[in-house]
Simulated assay, not measured.
Amino acid sequence: MPEADSPSQRLLRLTGWVAFVVLGTSGAWFITYALLPWELGYTYDPATGEGHGPWVPWQFLVCGILILAVAVTTSRSRYWPTVLLLPPALTLSWSVIVSREDMTGLWMIGLIYMMFASTVGTLFVLAVTRSFRELRLQRRSSLQSQEPPTA
C-alpha cells in the first residue's frame, strides 16, 4: 500500500501547480506578444480617425492554444482548483501591456471583458475536462467489475 504524502510534499506539489498555471498563462500572453512583428504598430485611418491595433489574428490563436493547454493539463490533475488562477493571471498579464499602449483609457473596460471571458472559458474547460475524467473512471470501474474472478 503506498504511503500518504506528507504535508510538505503536498505543499510543494501545490506550489508547483500554482507556478505552472500562473507562469504558463503569463508566459503564453507574453510569448505571443513577443512574436508581434515590430514593424507593425497602431495605424490610423485619416478618413475615419480610427486606430487599428498591431495585433494579427494568428497571435490570438497561438495564445489561445497555449492557454488551453495549461487549462486542460491543470484541470486533469489532482490539484485542479489551481486552474482558477488562470483568469487573474491572464488579465494581469494583458493589462500590463494594454494599459501602457492605450491612449483612450478604455483598457479598463477591456479588463472587465477579459476577466469575465477568461473566467467563463476556464470554468467551461474545467467542467468539460472533469466530466470526461469522471466518465473515464466510471467506465474503467464498470469494466473491472465485469471481469470474472481469476482462480
Rank of each mutant, 00 (worst) to 15 (best):
Y42P: 00
L68S: 05
R78V: 09
G51D: 07
L106G: 15
E147V: 14
I109G: 09
P37G: 03
A28G: 02
T32G: 15
G121Y: 02
T43D: 06
I109Q: 11
L143G: 05
S131P: 01
R139H: 09
F20L: 11
L123P: 00
S131Y: 12
L68C: 12
I31M: 12
R136H: 13
L90P: 00
W80N: 03
P7M: 13
L35I: 02
Y33P: 00
W107L: 06
T48C: 05
E147I: 13
W55G: 06
D5E: 15
L14G: 10
M115D: 03
T43E: 14
Q9D: 12
P149A: 14
D102L: 08
G24E: 08
V22L: 01
A117L: 13
L68Q: 04
S99W: 14
L14A: 15
L123A: 01
F60K: 10
M103E: 11
F132Q: 12
A19H: 03
W94P: 10
L84E: 00
L86E: 00
W55I: 10
A19Q: 02
A47Y: 08
L143P: 04
V98H: 10
S99R: 13
G51I: 00
I109P: 03
W29R: 05
L68W: 06
G27I: 03
R136C: 05
P54H: 13
M1K: 13
P149D: 15
P54S: 12
T48Q: 04
L85D: 00
S95Y: 09
I109E: 08
L23W: 01
S77A: 11
Q144S: 08
A71W: 01
G49S: 09
V96T: 06
V120P: 05
T32N: 07
G53R: 03
T25H: 10
E39M: 06
L40T: 05
T122C: 08
W38Q: 12
T32R: 04
M103G: 10
A89Q: 05
V18A: 08
T82M: 05
Y42W: 12
V120H: 04
P46V: 04
R139N: 09
D5C: 07
T150P: 07
P54F: 14
L92M: 08
T43Y: 07
T43L: 04
S77G: 04
L106N: 11
F124L: 15
L106W: 09
A19I: 08
P46H: 06
E50C: 07
A4H: 15
W107E: 02
T119S: 13
P87A: 02
A34D: 10
R78N: 11
L123T: 01
R136T: 04
T74S: 01
S95T: 11
A4C: 11
L66P: 00
Q9K: 12
S26E: 05
M115H: 00
T32V: 00
L68G: 06
V83K: 02
R100H: 13
L66V: 04
C63Q: 10
Y79V: 05
L126M: 09
Y79E: 11
R139C: 03
L12S: 15
S131T: 11
L126H: 07
S8I: 14
S99C: 09
A28C: 06
L135P: 04
M114C: 09
Y44T: 15
L85S: 05
W80G: 03
T32Y: 00
